[in-house]
Design a protein around this nucleic acid. Structure first.
Length: 828
RNA sequence: GCCGGGGUGGCGGAAUGGCAGACGCAGGCGACUUAAAAUCGCCCGUGGUAACACGUGCGGGUUCGAAUCCCGCCCCCGGCACCA
């Protein structure tokens, strides 16, 4: 069969480049020959090259998807050619809200929608010729996969890292659902404008805070974009400070505060509790009670977002006083919503002179401001115009006066600790991860609870569930599957949709009734560990064999959008560390090198969106130009990480380039030899393309191949050996054309099995260089010199140029700057 | 406000201390053609006939030499947003 192809190609210098014909042909070849199957065994070096897998939405692939996928595909094909065993898989992050919304509206089972969408996505990805090992395809909604997601949950549960807590959520009774913060506007639901309440609801929470230090420290070990590492650092938000106890006047209670500036303790002129603080009720005086109650109520009715939207420093005095432990001063205690209940101790000592927020509050409420830190070491005496938040020298601080901020902090923390009035403390902004959703289309949480009932709760008997006695479903019973429902609409019960599936929810064991957890997992769950399952996707007895995990981890290259810089990448790292502690994985971190592809904008430079009508559909592009043109164009647009606008006329230019490569390859002459200039260009091109692929600078790699093909076009006789090099360099970018060219040059497939071309650095060197001659920094002439000429040779050549000679005749030469092969600068 | 990234021809971009504008798009001229398309060749930062001058967001600095390094400012994009 392939002999026939050669014959056809050789006969057909007239045969035109026809992607519509060759692309399906080579896709079928790869498919039939398992060209991209991940090799077994471990003799060769490995490369695990991974894309962030997509949510298979109903609208199919958009042009943003293939950008990252093409980049990883080039890396995968390049590494194979370089002798690596490559793992390059693809799968589906298929749980998610859109399929559930569609089910609510149409009654279609989310699984049916999902299966259909996956089919579309897969067809489109295959159309683009990506070299995935499809035998490892994963779907996070398949029972095989859900089983192990649930297994990890149980592992978290057994380790005390999954617990239940009453967490205030945005519950909308009219919609019968819990809303995310961004779905609530001014206390009303974004859709429908129904009232939303902050109600405490039992939730499953994962103790990610237990891993905060490791998640922070190990960021040093990964090759990630700096911006992403910084975002994660800030999200974790570690700070070192002190906890200080303030005795409440007239009560047997003390207020604990957290501060990063214990050195400003002498400047604490009031305290603030978060409105939710449990001491509020006790310390509020009768006189202030009405005001305090009203303020607390008001804070409760606002969403977290609305509370944070206003920067005004509102608050009320509780009537209570507390004693400053360092100087015995009595300070008033306020409540204000600028103090957050979820951070630190939910209470602060307020130092208006040295904290902007406290300064604003003090100014608004007429509270004294005492300066305790100064740049010079002397108090300014005058009232401060604004808070001085920098470090400095202590003043007005008794025996501590004159200490630097750092010394003061260390001393007072020690003194407080000795006096039993405080201690050093580390705080994090990171909070535990609310892991339950009141949804249908997610992994059921494999937990059940004992039930008290006097009948059969499946048919309406009264029951009460002992949520405080959660029990793990036995691993042998996994996967715990979702029940079939007739109706996916959220109901009145905040326990979620699954609560209505009574036959599924309640079961009897050893004469006792039990109820299953009716919350499901969030979409993050499946994407937290899919990279692990790709390593051993059909293993029925383990999540992943230890041997294969050792072979393939960590992921060497992970490419995906920057929108996942924090949540997905932090959650996945957390689970990975838990699995490391459980002995499942051998590495600290899952993803060694991370790259974010930039966004592709519409033709007008605006974000692509249906409403703007500027969405480009990959099917149309492949129809018009072919998959290889689309791939090469997306890589040629600019740096991978950059945001850049789509341009259909530019893709036509890329298509012309591929056309020319096809045409010039058809002119191959086996007997022709490369002359010195062509040999040099060939070696330079190999070097440039190789280096650029290693650095993922695909745009400049393509440019170098364009230069080579332009030169080849000019030749009378085009040497086969040069065309072979071009085909090998081009094939990771334009794989179908690469195979076709390889056949045209008389070889049998696949070009993927050919070794990557090597260059000889000596042959890359030019033997002559053109050097600009500057006079006082301005270019006045150019001279041609042998490579590595000396300053004397350069000067001599420069003086023979008319312009230079004329200038030198007028003025004396004061200084010569000679950078070999680069520049000659004469200072007169 | 804070953090991160960026600002270069008509457009996408290249050059990270040494000839600014590689490569491509768009545009112009020419060849081929009865003609058009396609293809091929040449031109293409601005001003100027030219010599030359000017030119990488703006203002300053360092340097023989700056798109590139430093200081100050403006604008655009992304993220975070009272975290004590």
């Amino acid at each position: 069969m392939w002999a026939g192809l050669h014959h056809h190609a050789m006969a057909g210098a007239m045969t035109r480049y026809n992607p519509a014909a060759i692309e399906p042909k080579w896709q079928a070849y790869w498919n039939d020959h398992d060209t991209f199957k991940t090799p077994e065994g471990a003799e060769r070096p490995k490369a695990y090259i991974l894309d962030m897998f997509p949510y298979p939405s109903g609208s199919g692939l958009h042009v943003g998807h293939p950008e990252g996928y093409t980049a990883t595909d080039i890396m995968a094909r390049y590494r194979r050619a370089r002798g690596y065993d490559v793992l390059h898989p693809m799968g589906w992050d298929a749980f998610g809200l859109p399929a559930e919304q569609h089910a609510i509206l149409t009654g279609t089972h989310p699984r049916d929608t999902t299966v259909q969408n996956i089919e579309t996505f897969k067809r489109q990805l295959k159309m683009l010729g990506f070299s995935y090992d499809w035998s490892r395809e994963i779907d996070t909604t398949s029972p095989d996969y859900v089983r192990w997601t649930q297994w990890i949950f149980l592992e978290l549960f057994k380790r005390g890292l999954a617990y239940q807590n009453e967490v205030p959520v945005n519950w909308c009774p009219a919609l019968g659902t819990v809303l995310a913060n961004e779905e609530v506007i001014n206390g009303l639901s974004e859709r429908g404008g129904h009232p939303v309440e902050r109600v405490p609801l039992r939730q499953w929470v994962l103790k990610i805070t237990a891993y905060a230090d490791r998640l922070l420290a190990d960021l040093d070990d990964v090759e990630w974009p700096n911006s992403t590492r910084i975002m994660q650092q800030e999200w974790i938000g570690r700070s070192e400070g002190a906890e200080v106890h303030f005795q409440v006047v007239g009560h047997d209670a003390s207020i604990e505060v957290y501060t990063t500036r214990p050195d400003t303790l002498f400047g604490a002129t009031f305290m603030v509790l978060a409105p939710e603080h449990p001491l509020v009720d006790a310390i509020t005086s009768d006189r202030q009670r009405a005001d305090v109650t009203a303020y607390v109520e008001q804070a409760k009715s606002k969403s977290e977002r609305d509370r944070q939207a206003s920067k005004d420093k509102t608050g009320v005095f509780t009537g209570g006083l507390a004693i400053n432990p360092v100087n015995g001063a009595e300070v008033p205690v306020y409540i204000a919503d600028y103090v957050l209940w979820g951070y630190g101790t939910g209470a602060i000592m307020a130092v208006p002179a040295h904290d902007e927020r406290d300064f604003e509050f003090a100014t608004a409420h007429g509270i004294p401001i005492i300066e305790v830190v100064s740049k010079t070491g002397a108090a300014s005496g005058a009232p401060l115009a604004e808070a001085m938040v920098e470090q400095g020298i202590a003043v007005n601080s008794g025996k501590y006066d004159g200490l630097s901020t750092a010394e003061f902090k260390a001393r007072i923390t020690k003194d407080l600790e000795e006096a039993g009035k405080g201690r050093a403390r580390v705080e994090y902004k990171l909070r535990d991860w609310i892991f339950s959703r009141q949804r249908y289309w997610g992994e059921p949480i494999p937990i059940y609870f004992p039930v008290d009932t006097d009948g059969d709760p499946r048919v309406g008997a009264e029951f009460s569930i002992h949520y405080d006695e959660p029990m793990a479903v036995d691993a042998s019973e996994l996967p715990l599957r979702l029940p079939e429902l007739d109706d996916y609409k959220p109901g009145k019960d905040p326990a979620g949709v699954l609560a209505r599936a009574a036959d599924w929810r309640f079961f009897r064991k050893d004469g006792r009734w039990y109820a299953r957890e009716t919350n499901t997992m969030p979409q993050w769950a499946g994407s937290c560990w899919y990279y692990l399952r790709f390593i051993d996707p059909r293993n029925e007895s383990e999540i992943c064999s230890r041997e294969l995990a050792e072979r393939w981890l960590p992921v060497d290259l992970y490419v995906g959008g920057a929108e996942h810089a924090v949540l997905h990448l932090l959650y996945a790292r957390f689970w990975h560390k838990v699995l490391f502690d459980a002995g499942v994985v051998p590495t600290n971190e899952p993803f060694k090198k991370l790259v974010h592809q930039g966004m592709i904008l519409g033709e007008g430079g605006q974000k692509m969106s249906k409403s703007r009508g500027n969405v480009v559909n990959p099917d149309d592009i492949v129809d018009a130009f072919g998959a290889d043109s689309m791939r090469v164009y997306e890589m040629f647009m600019g740096p991978l990480e950059a945001t850049k606008p789509w341009s259909t006329s530019s893709i036509a230019g890329v298509r012309r380039f591929l056309d020319r490569v096809h045409t010039v390859t058809a002119r191959a002459e086996a007997s022709a030899r490369s002359d010195a200039a062509l040999t040099r260009l060939l070696h330079q091109t190999i070097r440039k393309v190789t280096d650029d692929i290693e650095g993922m600078r695909f745009n400049t790699a393509i440019s170098a191949m364009m230069v080579l093909s332009n030169e080849l076009m000019k030749l009378e006789q085009v040497p086969t050996e040069a065309l072979e090099v071009l085909a090998k360099l081009l094939h990771p970018f334009a794989p179908h054309l690469g195979e076709e060219l390889w056949g045209m040059l008389g070889h049998s497939p696949s070009i993927q099995h050919q070794a990557w071309p090597e260059y000889d650095p000596a042959l890359c060197e030019e033997d002559e260089v053109e050097v600009p001659v500057q006079i006082n920094g301005k270019v006045r002439a150019r001279i041609t010199l042998p490579k590595d000429a000396t300053q004397d040779q350069a000067l001599k050549a420069a003086k023979s140029a008319d312009v230079v000679a004329a200038q030198l005749a007028d003025k004396p030469l004061r200084k010569v700057i000679w950078v070999p092969n680069k520049i000659l600068n004469l200072i007169l």
